[in-house]
Each structure stands twice: as C-alpha cells, then as structure tokens.
Computed example of a mutant assay.
Amino acid sequence: MTARVAEREGFAALVLRLRAEGISDIDLLTAVEQTPRSQFVPPEFAGSAYSSRTLPIPCGSFMEGADMAVRLLDRLKLKPGHRVLEVGTGSGFTAAVMGRIVERVLSIDRYKTLVNDAQQRLDALSLRNVIVRQADGSVGLQGEGTFDRILVTTAFPAMPRFYVEQLVSGGSMIAPLIASEDSCRMVRLTRVGSRFERDDLFEVPYMPIVPKLASIL
C-alpha cells in the first residue's frame, strides 16, 4: 500500500467515526483532508496517524488522537475571518487545519524544538497565515489584541482569566481544566457582552501546563 493510499484510507475511516458522533461540518472535514496528518506524526507512528491513539512527540509531549483533534475543532465552530489563538502548538496539526478555515492563527508553545518543527511543516504546506511562536503560555499573551476563538491544549487548574479577557464579544474559548488528581475536563466559555456562558464538554487526557520557556529543548 502506498503512502497516498494509506492516507486516503485513514482519513476515510476517521470520517466514518466522526459522522457516527454527529460531526459532519464539510468545511472542517475538507480542511482535515487537505492537511496530511502523517506529516505531523513521528515516522514510526505513520500507520497510526488517523487513529484515536494519543501519540508521543518530542520534548516529552504528545499529540491527541485524530478523533479528539477534530472533535475539539468542531466545538470551536471556526469561521472564515476569525483570528485564533492556540496555546500548545505540539505537532502543529490543529494549527494547520485551523489555518485552512480562518483568517489568522497564532500558535504558541514553550518548546523551541516543537515550534521549529511545526513551522517547517506549515511552510511545507504553504500556510502563511499561521504564525508559530515560542512563548510561556502559563502567563497569558499580551500585545496581540483580541481573538474570535482561543484553543488551549494544556490543562489549567482554573479557567485562565488572562486568556478569557482576550476574547471578542461573541468569541469562545475551549480549555482543559483539572477537575481532580486523575480527571481533566474540556470546558468552553463564550463571551456574551460582559459575562461568560460555560459549557462542560467531555473528559480529556491533557497534562497540566508547565510554566516558563524550556531552556534547552
């Protein structure tokens, strides 16, 4: 089986699983199809690129399974013209998919290795509207204005107020919150004027956020 055929079959199987969950947003699924996931996973895991498995990536980090990645993006309800902030670049896959839908994506990570690797993948796909930057996501991000959507993929003990305040009115943020020692739940906050509406979504496997920039990796 060639790599191209394996990619197509993996994507087709993913779409069937997602549709069984009620996820059928054609713009989102097209963006996923146009972003070869096998280019974002370590070579030894290419055969699991479209599986629901959590896969290890450099710097002791991991990338969520394909099902979880698309499920999160579906909950974000991305639209053309949106400005999006992603906290936790990881492999760069979700940033790449979002970049095919929205106007601009700013993605940050504490690891320079992950930032450089993700940028190379994005450059290879000619996604010029996605900017990846090394930054300490535990203290917020100043000087970048407001965003229509914010996606956080590393867990906080409480909803990070410094990010919530960067939402436009009508904007929403999805972030994993630590519920207990062995439980983490994805939560969505939507800004309605000066107040916020909260929706608890589902359990997620994310690890607690690590402060400060990585000094070596």
Results as ranks from 00 to 15, higher is better:
G137M: 07
Y163I: 02
L76A: 01
V139Y: 12
V152F: 06
R161W: 12
T89M: 12
R133L: 13
L76W: 00
N116H: 12
E181P: 03
A96M: 07
M68V: 06
N129V: 05
Y163S: 01
T154H: 11
V115K: 04
P160V: 04
D67P: 00
F62Q: 13
E103C: 05
R83W: 08
G143D: 08
L72Y: 01
A155R: 02
R71A: 00
G140H: 10
L114Q: 12
G137D: 07
A124R: 10
I178E: 11
M173D: 04
G99C: 11
E144V: 06
Y111I: 11
T113E: 15
Q119N: 14
I150C: 02
D117Y: 09
V115T: 10
D117M: 13
V87I: 15
S183W: 12
F162I: 11
G60N: 15
M63S: 07
I174F: 04
L78F: 02
M63Q: 12
L106N: 04
G99D: 08
R100Q: 10
Y111K: 07
R185V: 15
T89F: 10
S91W: 06
M159N: 05
G65V: 01
G140V: 06
G170N: 10
M173C: 09
I174C: 07
F156I: 10
V130L: 10
V130A: 09
G143Y: 05
L76E: 01
V130I: 14
T153G: 05
I150P: 00
G143S: 08
A175V: 12
N116K: 15
L177C: 06
F147Y: 10
A135R: 11
V87A: 08
D74W: 09
A95Y: 02
H82M: 15
G81E: 09
G170K: 03
G60D: 15
N129P: 03
R104V: 03
A135S: 15
I150G: 00
T153V: 03
Y111A: 11
E64D: 14
I108C: 07
V168I: 14
S172P: 00
L73K: 01
F156P: 03
M173A: 09
N116M: 14
E64S: 14
L151K: 01
S172G: 12
V105K: 00
L141Y: 06
M68H: 02
